[in-house]
Nucleic acid binder design. Structure first.
Lengths: 147, 147
DNA sequence: TAATATTGCATTGCGTACAATAAGATTGTA
DNA sequence: TACAATCTTATTGTACGCAATGCAATATTA
């Protein structure tokens, strides 16, 4: 990686493309497991958050997932239609819509308990490298979001 | 990061989410620069490939960008409408559509020569870390795509 | 060479992803 | 208590991203 301007415009020299491609390819590894339960990746990570902490508002979910209401509103409506969550407008502050897991939604967690381990194996990466990689990504994410 | 199944289902413990979030956030850093020239990120990386090697077929572009024809066909039509590329069906094999930069498309590269350097600074990451991170991502990508 | 298989692109449909905007509710303050 | 500012969600429009399908062109093979 030298400093030549045109070399740096090569796709293979771009960190951003490596991130973009890796993200898509790893998500594609999840798909067969998620499709088996009728879920998309975005729906899955939304459930991950709710399994960790139930009863969040749309904006709280958005903050954790880095998604805005334009993405979340239709997605949450689909999860509601699948009877995995309920959307309830807050009585005290009617601007807020709170999201609750249904019993069905809560139970669904059981089906995914082994998935992280399975995905880790599929990735063919070493544990130490995965930890290292995630740490670097989180630091990069922190840098960006502080701007 | 211990081995508890429920802990591994926490969003913060998921390498995939770190990739997904990082990818989106870095792409969002590109947007102001790309919008100034009427480009999206996907259109930009398509041009990156063509600046490096002109006259590729749709499938060759797809192999490099890891995108399929359902994504590329409408995107290439937009770039053609902007007069940055031309799409020409191959005379020898009429199944093939070859993509050529126009003079306007070739000249546009000049506007982006400094962008990689600028984005690197914006990311607040150290050079050594960026190199390390990209290497790990490319290795991970290689692992996945060998399956 | 006729039948079959494969290849390469285009189309459709669904689901994000996000900017811009709208609309309703709440809060702060004069 | 008006009322402006802010907050929160919803809607709209544009652009991917990909699976599934269609179809025309080419390659293969019996």
């Amino acid at each position: 990686m030298n400093g030549n301007s045109k070399d740096m415009l090569k796709l293979d020299n771009q960190l951003c493309f490596a991130l973009y491609a890796c993200s898509k390819e790893i998500i594609s590894l999840y798909k067969p497991y998620l499709n088996a339960h009728g879920l998309t990746y975005t729906q899955y990570i939304t459930l991950l958050v709710l399994w960790e902490q139930d009863s969040l508002s749309v904006s709280e979910l958005g903050n954790k997932l880095l998604l805005d209401s334009g993405t979340l509103t239709p997605l949450l409506k689909k999860l509601e239609k699948s009877q995995l969550i309920e959307r309830v407008r807050d009585k005290d502050d009617e601007r807020i819509v709170k999201v609750y897991l249904t019993e069905k939604g809560r139970m669904l967690q059981e089906s995914f308990l082994e998935l992280p381990q399975k995905m880790f194996c599929n990735s063919g990466i070493k544990l130490e490298e995965a930890i290292n990689l995630k740490a670097m990504l989180n630091q990069l994410l922190g840098n960006i979001r502080k701007l």
